[in-house]
Every structure is written in structure tokens, then in C-alpha cells.
Amino acid sequence: MARVVTPAQKSINTAAAWVVALIIFFPILWTFLTSFKPEEVAVASPPVFVGFDWTMQNYHDVIAQRGYGSYFWNSVVISVGSTVLGMIIAIPAAWAMAFVHGKRTKDLLMWMLSTKMMPAAGVLVPIYLMGKSLGLIDTRFMLMIVLMLMNLPIIVWMLYTYFREIPGDILEAARMDGANLMSEILYVLTPMAIPGIASTLLLNVILAWNESFWTLNLTTFQAAPLTKFIAGFSSPQGLFYGKLSAASVMAIVPIMVIGWFSQKQLVRGLTFGAVK
């Protein structure tokens, strides 16, 4: 039985938690507010919080002058493409490891995880040169492949932990009931695994969307996603706070909303099922 807490205690706890939460969230809120300020208000001293003439001008400028659309589209194609590609390769592997659990399964999973330990910087040179000699630098295709490979261990791990939760008994029951491998996967496994597959998909789209080593180093303009778009504001345009904020909001909002919806599953996914 949970203990009854007095309203006074609860109020204090609530206030403290909200203060902390708002401090953590404040930079995002501030960026959001600033994105609607005329530039002169954005840099005003002392700063103005909400009492200004709200304007869409910054958004307008960013979209019209800086080609937001193409960056956004590149981000979508690269993150979704790499994730879907990874899922196609990872689902059978995770399925096999989860339901035909051998002695070496754990070693294999650990090895896959260890490939993530290789620092991207360590292999930047050969990847870059390989891409260059194949004419793939600054192509969405190359980024899709690279990000897919980078996230593959995570995808396999996540799916594995979700699949492991499906009791083997049920698959055996299906086998006894006369299902072959295809119908077992189609009628029994997939419907039960859909929540897991969905959250794996979402998390990896988020990771790919925000990846900012390969996306910055392997693109120049054609395939450049939003990370590159934002990095372009580092200077001196960064001093136009209104435009910087509008660009930032447009780069983060789509993925943040996805993140909010999938945050419950995030923990399990990101900890490889070690924390539930």
C-alpha cells in the first residue's frame, strides 16, 4: 500500500519538481519564444519574455532564404530510410536470437554492441575516402547506409529484448497448431511484436535525425540534413537570434513530438532492455 501523503507535502514536492523541470526545459521554451520576436526584440536588454509583437517573419525568412525545405526533406529521407533499412536486416536476426537462444547468443549480442564502441572519428578517413572514390560523398544514399550500420546494433538489441518477452510457449503452440514458419511469423509473432517494432522504429528515427558526426562530415549541400542547416548558423548568422531560434524550432519540433509520444518505450530501448 502506498502511504497517504498530506496535501501540504505533496504541494511542496510538486512545486520543487516543477521548478526543476522548468529550469531544464527553459532553453527550449526561450528558443520557442525568441523565434517569434522581431530581431531587435530578440537581442533587447533587458530581455523581453512575452510582451512583444509576435511575428512569423523569422520563419518566413528562414524558409524563403535558407532553403529549409530541402534540408528537412533530406533529414526525413535519411533518418527514415536508414531506420527502415536497418529494421529489414535486423528483424530476422533478432527473431532468430530471441527464439533460438544458443550458447553464443549473448556473446554475439555483446560483439554487436562492441562495434558501437568504435569511435566514428577513428574511421572517418577511410569512410570519407571510400565515399569519395565511389562518388557518394554528399549523397543521401551514403548517409542512409552509414547511419543504418551505425544504428544496426541498437536496432538488433532493442528488437531482441522485445522479442524475448514473447513467451516461447506461444510460438511452440503455434507450431503444434500446424503453423509453418511463415504463418508463425505472420499471424503470431508480428502482431505481438508490433509495439516493440514501433518503438524501435521511432527511437532509431530520433537517433538518426539527431546524428551529427557523419551528417556534418559527409555532406556539403545536396544531401545535407537539418544538422548541417543548423551548423550553418554557427557564425555570424547565429547573432540573429530570431532566425536562429526559428530555424532551431523547425529542426527539433518534429522529432521532439515523436519523442514525447514514445518516451515510455525509450527507456527500455535505450538501455537494451536492462532497465524496465
Partner: peptide, 25 residues
């Protein structure tokens, strides 16, 4: 809502958070 506020920075791409902090803070 508190959870959502607290988790939000995790979804911000590194260049964005770096620029926000660098310029506006």
C-alpha cells in the same frame, strides 16, 4: 507533464543545443 519537460532536451540535435546555449545564454 513534468516527465515530458524533463525528457525534452534529449530530443534536441547537438548543433541546435550547442547554438542555443552559445548564442542566447
Amino acid at each position: 507533464p513534468v516527465r515530458i519537460l524533463v525528457i525534452s532536451p534529449f530530443f534536441i540535435m547537438p548543433p541546435v543545443s550547442a547554438l542555443i546555449w552559445k548564442n542566447m545564454f
